[in-house]
Write a protein that binds this DNA or RNA. Structure first.
Lengths: 333, 333
DNA sequence: CTGAAAGCGCTTACAG
DNA sequence: CTGAAAGCGCTTACAG
């Protein structure tokens, strides 16, 4: 006894079994179509399921098997093409392998807290892909030690990680700008949150290093939040003094308003004003922005593949680091 | 017998009970801190949990209670500020009420299929908010009849819906343009998928209707996919012939490249070229685009609130429709 | 190939 | 206030 019908008289595997005149085990077997079931029996069960409108209860399945076929994907944001591309490429691999992704964008403080409080969500999935934020710091105490985890754009002592050599990307951007006979500016993002990614800084460092090697230096670095509004302002400030200069933005996203302002002020972008972004976001292709291309899709694909191997217990034990190289793409700016 | 330790010797409620020398029921009670537990007992249980590193198994809880405290949020996309704002406002209400959101953006065909195939995901949550796509068509046969569902930007016969009066939005845009002594063009999105939203069409219809009433008409309608690339092309085509015209875009997103091209071609935006968007996305505020403001945050908030009421069984039974009105925001374009 | 049964880890009336 | 027990709806060795 002791049971209230919460689930609105849902039909269970038991009802199906009775209806088809078989045991529940058999129903379960056709459900998972593993082990051999007699074709005629299977047919009977199948039509019983249809007849009764049976839908399996995922919670029960998960409790019983201990797996959910779900993967949590944590990103610091989901705005912008970068994450679109990344998530789509992760998803593609996941779906192909029978998993679904559970997206968890940490777009504000509240989401951080919510994640820590109801870490249930994580624990109910089979694996975890974390982009940009530090697992060790953010979730070190929450994630079970043997949960399969892959880090993206973030190093980890304990887990596999996929990184892009952002420092190297900065270097090639610097090499490209060093020969230009103009002032050199940088517009970059200052990380606002302890747990945010350090990629922008790495790009900046590489850029700086490359210029130094060639006996040049950055004339000024502008730090902005990751929005266009502030970047417009910065651009106006720059162009009101300099009608001729080279600007490196540590992401294409920040290059867009700069180019917009330059054009509005009728400066010749690509000639007097040179702009090099980073990432090769779709917008960079559309606006023909010169940029450092990051292999975003590859990152997602590799991350998902490694994670699935880990979930299936096929991965090697030692912590692995995959480092992908960016490349310079010269366009019109 | 019959059991492999899949879950890496995880500690269960049983272990905690034994350790604290109480029954499992008591542990469960302190876990959910309902019904009264003796303070000293509670303390003993609490420290036992800490000692053993106990983490509750959500699957078991869900199977037992039949609830998950999860809400699925389905959107046709998640790119762009519109969905950012919408999702954030939904999340805020959800989190405040102890729920978590499970994001499911249908950004391509593959995701549609995946959703239909593993509809498990939906069924394992307590409720469903669906934006833009037709639940009846998309999921009519999957969603249980008594699953709490709220539709956004999409009417439904069976479920509550929150709509914006897009037709009315078109009307006020038309009223605004009708007095302008220039050619009038429209750039809009042609829905590519059977299940896509019809908002763009409704806006267009309102716009058309308003112009007709005032004895005017649209000179040409340009249909584009929802990306900038094609819109750039269209803009170039328009401005190569017309140096003076008014353009209504059925979303701000499409207004951006048009303004960009106009400025690049040195046309006077706001004077010779008038542009009115729709939505009032952040980008519209940044670029000072005249637009029809949609109350995005309100939509999300109202949807989440209604859903929670339904989940808690406090909602009225009849299907409810909430219609929010957009308004004209005049800026520089 | 298949049924009966134990088990997954919780929750919750019931009877103290 | 609390323990013993039934139940949630599945899966899966086990023994035919």
């Amino acid at each position: 006894m002791a049971r209230i019908a919460r689930n609105f008289q849902k039909v269970t595997i038991k009802d199906v079994a009775k209806y088809a005149d078989v045991g529940v085990g058999t129903v379960s077997r056709v459900l998972n179509n593993n082990s051999h079931v007699d074709p005629s029996t299977r047919q009977r069960v199948l039509s019983a399921m249809k007849e009764l409108g049976y839908v399996p209860n995922p919670h029960a399945r998960r409790l019983s098997t201990g797996t959910s076929d779900l993967v949590t994907v944590i990103t610091p944001e989901m705005k912008g093409d970068f994450y679109q591309t990344l998530i789509a490429s992760i998803d593609e691999v996941l779906i192909k392998n029978g998993y679904s992704s559970l997206l968890y964008p940490l777009y504000n403080e509240r989401k951080y807290e919510a994640l820590r409080k109801s870490s249930e969500i994580l624990l109910s999935t089979d694996g975890l892909i974390v982009d940009g934020v530090s697992v060790d710091k953010l979730l070190g105490d929450i994630v079970e030690p043997n949960m399969p985890v892959v880090c993206l754009e973030q190093e980890s002592e304990r887990y596999d990680s996929i990184m892009v050599d952002n420092y190297y990307g900065g270097i090639i951007a610097g090499d490209y700008f060093a020969d230009l006979d103009m002032e050199i500016f940088v517009v970059t993002h200052r990380k606002a949150h302890e747990l945010e990614s350090t990629v922008f800084d790495e790009r900046l460092e590489g850029f700086q290093e490359s210029l130094e090697r060639k006996g040049r230096s950055i004339d000024k670095i502008y730090y902005v939040p990751l929005d266009w509004e502030s970047t417009f302002e910065v651009a106006r400030r720059i162009f009101s003094r300099y009608k001729r200069c080279a600007i490196f933005t540590t992401t294409d996203y920040l290059a867009v308003p700069i180019i917009e302002v330059a054009r509005t002020m009728e400066l010749k972008v690509g000639k007097d004003v040179r702009v090099c972004g980073f990432d090769d976001l779709p917008i960079a292709q559309i606006l023909e922005i010169t940029t450092i291309r990051q292999p975003i899709s590859d990152m997602g694909k590799v991350a998902a593949e490694i994670l699935i191997k880990k979930i299936r217990g096929k991965a090697r034990d030692k912590v692995r680091k995959v480092i992908l190289k960016p490349e310079l793409v010269i366009r019109e700016t």
